[in-house]
Design a protein around this nucleic acid. Structure first.
Lengths: 228, 228
DNA sequence: GCTGCTTTTAATCAGGCGATTAATTAAGGA
DNA sequence: TCCTTAATTAATCGCCTGATTAAAAGCAGC
C-alpha cells in the first residue's frame, strides 16, 4: 500500500539511506552475477538490510534492476547532453570531441570508486550483450534516445558517412567502451605481466582515437560496394 | 560409472545423436538466457531428450556449458590457425588480412544456420562480458592461446605499435565482432526502419576496415604521452 | 503517553531448480 | 539363449529462489 508512495512520490522522493544502500548493493551483485545469477538475499546481505525491504521499496527483483539502471543512466545522459550543448556553443565540434563527449561520462563514472566504480559498467555489459526481453527493454528505454542524438551528430560531422555507418560506428564505440570499462581480467592475462596503467585520460584518449579512426574508415571509398 | 567412458573416451568418442542434440539445444538456451537464466529442463525439452540425460552424458550443467564452448572454439581456432599459416605461406601478410583471418571464422559460423547460427556468438557474448569465475575460466582456456598468437602478429605488422596497443586492439576487435554478430535488435531500433543488410562480406569487410584503422591510430604519434 | 502512520523484522510460502535414483529397455558377446 | 553393459526413462529428492505476511519497532502530531 505505502509502497507506491515510497518508490515514486510526486514531489521530492527523498530516497532514504536504506534504499540507496540496496541500490548500491544491487549494482554490485547484478554486475558480478547478472540478473539471473544475482539473488535478492545476496543483495540484502551486502546492503545489510532485511530481504523483505527490497520488495517493500522496489516491488520486485526486476523493478530493482531497472531502478539500478535508471539511477545511473539518467545522470550519465544528462551529462552527455550538457557537454554536447557546450560543444556546440563553443563551435569546436569534431568527431574526436563528439566521441569524448559520448564516452567520458561513462568511463569517468566507471573510474570513480565513490560512485560504484566499474560495477554499473558491468551491469551495462550484461544488458548490452543480452538478447532477452528485459535487456532489450532496458537499453532501449534508457539509451536509445541519446543514441539517436549521437548517431545524427556523427553522421553530420563525418563527410560521406551513411546513416548505416553512423549506427555501426556508434555501436562499435559503445562496444569498445564497455570492453574497456568492464575489465574481465583479460588484459592482465594477455599482457605478460606488463599491466596496462589505468590513467583515465589515457584510456579515454585511446578509445576515442581508435573509434574515430574506425568511423572515418567506414566513410572512406569502398565502404558500400564489395571491395574485398 | 559409464559416464566417464562416454564423455571422453580415449580413441574415437563418436558422440551420439542425443548428445549433439543436447549440445545444440544448450547452445540456443545458454545463448538466449545466459548460464544462470538457462535451465537444464528447458535444454532437455528443446533437445527432445530426458532431463537426466544431460547429467548422464555431461555430468553437470556447468560441464555442459563448457562442452558447448569447447565444441565450437576448437573448430574456430583450428580454422584461424590454418588460415594464418596459409597467409604466411603466400607472404601477403597485412593488418587487414590478419583481422580477416581472425574474424572470418567466427562471423562465418555466426551466419551459418546449419551450424547453430548466431547462438554460439551470443554465448560468447555472455562469456566475454562476464566477470565471474566461470566466464574467466572459459575464455582463458579456449581463447587465450589464439589471442596471444594474433596479438604478436598484430604487434609485428603495425609499425610503432606497442604490445599494450596490440592487446587493446585485439580486445577491441573481439568486442566489435561480438557486438556485430550477437544482434540484440539494437541496429533495427536505431536505423529508423532502414534495416542493414546482412551480407557476410560486407559485414566482415566493414569490421575489418574499422578495426584496422583503429589499431593504426593507436600506433600513431601521441599514443603514449598525454596528448589530450 | 496515547494514536496512527511508516518502516523494519523474522518467519514462512509455494514453486522451480539441479541433481539423483531405481527401474526399464536396447544392444552385443559368448 | 543368456548375461553383461550401455542407454533411457519417470519419479523424486533436498535446496534455494522470489515473494508474502503478520507482527514488532520507530516516530511523528497532539
Amino acid at each position: 500500500m505505502a509502497r507506491l508512495a515510497v518508490t515514486r512520490p510526486e514531489g521530492a522522493p527523498e530516497r532514504g539511506e536504506a534504499q540507496e544502500a540496496i541500490l548500491d548493493a544491487a549494482e554490485i551483485v547484478f554486475g558480478e552475477s547478472g540478473f539471473h545469477g544475482a539473488t535478492t538475499r545476496a543483495i540484502a546481505v551486502r546492503a545489510q538490510a532485511n530481504a523483505a525491504l527490497i520488495h517493500y521499496y522496489f516491488g520486485s527483483k526486476e523493478a530493482l534492476y531497472e531502478a539500478v539502471i535508471a539511477r545511473r543512466a539518467g545522470a550519465i545522459n544528462d551529462e552527455r547532453r550538457a557537454r554536447l550543448a557546450e560543444l556546440h556553443a563553443t563551435g569546436a565540434v569534431t568527431l574526436e570531441a563528439l566521441l569524448d563527449t559520448l564516452l567520458r561520462p561513462t568511463i569517468s563514472l566507471g573510474r570513480d570508486p565513490s560512485r560504484g566504480g566499474a560495477h554499473y559498467t558491468r551491469v551495462l555489459g550484461h544488458a548490452a550483450s543480452g538478447t532477452d526481453e528485459r535487456s532489450h527493454r532496458v537499453t532501449s528505454a534508457y539509451y536509445d534516445g541519446i543514441a539517436r542524438v549521437f548517431i545524427a551528430e556523427i553522421a553530420a560531422i563525418v563527410p560521406g558517412l551513411s546513416r548505416e555507418g553512423a549506427v555501426r560506428g556508434y555501436l562499435n564505440a559503445i562496444a569498445v567502451a564497455i570492453s574497456l570499462m568492464a575489465p574481465t581480467g583479460r588484459v592482465q592475462d594477455l599482457s605478460d605481466g606488463t599491466l596496462a596503467d589505468d590513467d583515465l585520460e589515457e584510456m579515454l584518449g585511446g578509445a576515442v582515437r581508435f573509434v574515430a579512426a574506425g568511423i572515418r574508415a567506414l566513410a572512406a571509398p569502398g565502404s558500400k560496394p564489395g571491395a574485398a
